[in-house]
Design a binder for these strands. Structure first.
Length: 478
RNA sequence: GAGUCGGUAGCUCAGCUGGUAGAGCAACGGCCUUUUAAGCCGUGGGUCCUGGGUUCAAAUCCCAGCCGACUCACCA
């Protein structure tokens, strides 16, 4: 290992510990309680047995203070020469460094300054760190280091560690909510012969033994619908989707999607479900329905959430006359508003560009935007009164689409023609296996997809998707 | 993929009207038995992202590249 003076010093300490017959990488150490539990039971002179990482120390000569941190919290250690023997004290003083993982036993007491502290009686080196950990006060702020060496970020930045704990709790509450309503969690293929269920660029891979080209899935939708055909009435899957597209503050090539299907329901069933689910999650995880965003503004999750049709919200924001304009005038207006679109964009795409660029980003509180134009959604049921729109909603919170939901299209003949249209006539791109399943009869159903990463962003006030994905994709370091 | 900004010691940062690299913490040695960003004395530590160029002289100016952040595009 190359190294600076600090690495050299630590390597020497490691070697000297070994020479003295002390294993600097320890072994099983039965921790009696977490630091948080120890702090919650501060009876003076109570025996404790704790383990964690040494985060700071203050050497006073014949005694020293140090801070021990585990996943639950931190506690101060007091190491005294007269309590340990001379040899052990010198060992601690000269061979234990910031960042080392150690186990300690001792008794609780409260210092003059009022801080609960462990008077250390014995300690064990459980893992000697060869690389220095920055002193916690300065932390680790460099974004690149935080992402590439997430373990440092987690140890040193409480906010980061808390966000990922919250993510776990959120996902766990979602499962609880759905399980409690009779939904069955399933897992469907992530490697698919055809990447269907969403208009997105897939990753490609290859199975050698079958000599088969495969795609990483862009959505589980078509498989979950096969399960509806198979008699599952309430199913969901929480798993990764992969899309071979750009990376941004809101996009990671692999992201976690929740998809839910309920037979005999429709998009309004999903509306109630998602509202109930997010409200319950917020209450159970955060104890409140107000979320503070990174910019200080607040999101109010109090139900019932606003419902408005796509047409109405466009008219509300852009002007009642919008849909009476000629397609040419609409393009002109859109361009004047600084919204870009391909020159040959069809009419509905111009309107949708307006919606996505100027309306969606302003919707902070939960809003169900319903009944999008049929052209935008190929897997949804047409509205019975107006075949030009479909029975769907997009739930917008935090200026981002959190969940689209549909009354799922279950007419196999219509579905085939819509998919064929979308594939621009390329029949070989149709998922015949899926269409065959539909031809066997899929019950009418409500279906919904929720981007878990974005939901977590919204609920934790995170500014970037990288703040809620432990190991977001980065270019390898040069 | 395009534009803008950034990359200096282990960490956090200063230095960038060009004059040959600094601070605090961390490390190392010493003092100190209730400190908590402990304190005091001393020592060492740098491919200033990489490669070119301009110049007597480049961390600093110019060009190219690498990596990251942000914005845009693709998309959720």
């Amino acid at each position: 290992m190359e190294g600076n003076d600090q690495i050299q010093a630590r390597l020497e300490k490691r070697a000297k510990l070994l020479e003295q017959g002390i294993d600097p990488y320890g072994g099983r150490f039965d921790v009696h309680e977490t630091i948080a539990v120890a702090r919650a039971n501060p009876t003076p002179e109570r025996d404790v047995r704790l383990a964690g990482r040494l985060m700071s120390h203050r050497d006073m000569g014949k005694s020293m203070f140090a801070d021990l941190k585990d996943s639950s919290g931190r506690i101060q250690l007091y190491i005294q020469k007269k309590v340990l023997n001379d040899e052990q004290f010198e060992l601690f003083k000269h061979f234990v460094d910031l960042g080392d993982v150690i186990g300690v036993t001792g008794k609780l007491f409260v210092t003059h300054a009022g801080e609960l502290t462990v008077r250390v009686e014995t300690f064990t080196v459980l893992s000697k760190a060869i690389r220095p950990l920055p002193k916690e006060h300065f932390g680790i702020k460099d974004t690149e280091t935080r992402l590439r060496q997430r373990y440092l970020d987690l140890w040193l930045n409480d906010k980061s560690r808390e966000t990922f704990l919250l993510r776990s709790k959120i996902v766990s509450e979602i499962r609880k909510y759905l399980d409690g309503r009779g939904f069955v969690e399933v897992e469907t293929p992530m490697m698919q012969p055809l990447a269907g269920g969403a208009a997105a660029e897939p990753f490609q891979t290859h199975h050698n033994a079958l000599d088969l080209d495969l795609f990483l899935r862009v959505a589980p939708e078509l498989y979950l619908k096969r399960l509806l055909v198979g008699g599952y009435e309430k199913v969901y899957e929480i798993n990764r989707n992969f899309r071979n597209e750009g990376i941004s503050r809101r996009h990671n090539p692999e992201f976690t999607m929740l998809e839910v299907y309920q037979a005999y329901g429709d998009f309004e069933t999903m509306m109630e479900l998602v509202q109930g689910m997010i409200v319950t999650v917020a209450e159970n995880v955060f104890d409140q329905l107000t979320v503070k965003r990174y910019d200080g503004t607040e999101i109010d999750l109090t139900p019932p959430w606003r419902r408005i049709t796509y047409r109405e919200i466009v008219e509300e924001r852009i002007g009642k006359e919008w849909f009476t304009l000629s397609p040419g005038d609409r393009k002109l207006r859109a361009t004047q508003m600084g919204v870009e679109f391909p020159p040959d964009a069809p009419d509905y795409e111009v309107t949708n560009a307006i919606f996505e660029k100027t309306i969606e980003p302003t919707l902070m509180n939960p809003t169900f935007v319903t009944h999008l134009p049929a052209e935008l959604v190929v897997l949804a049921k047409p509205n019975k009164q107006d075949a030009g729109i479909v029975d769907v909603f997009e739930l917008i919170i935090n200026g981002q689409e959190i969940a689209p939901a549909y009354s799922e299209l279950n007419d196999p003949v219509v579905q085939r023609s819509r998919l064929l249209e979308q594939a621009a006539g390329h029949a070989e791109k149709l998922d015949e296996d899926f269409l065959t399943a539909l031809e066997h009869g899929m019950p009418p159903a409500g279906g919904m997809g929720i981007g878990i990463d974005r939901l977590v962003m919204m609920l934790t006030g995170a500014e970037s998707i990288r703040d809620v994905i432990l190991f977001p994709l980065l270019r390898p370091q040069a």
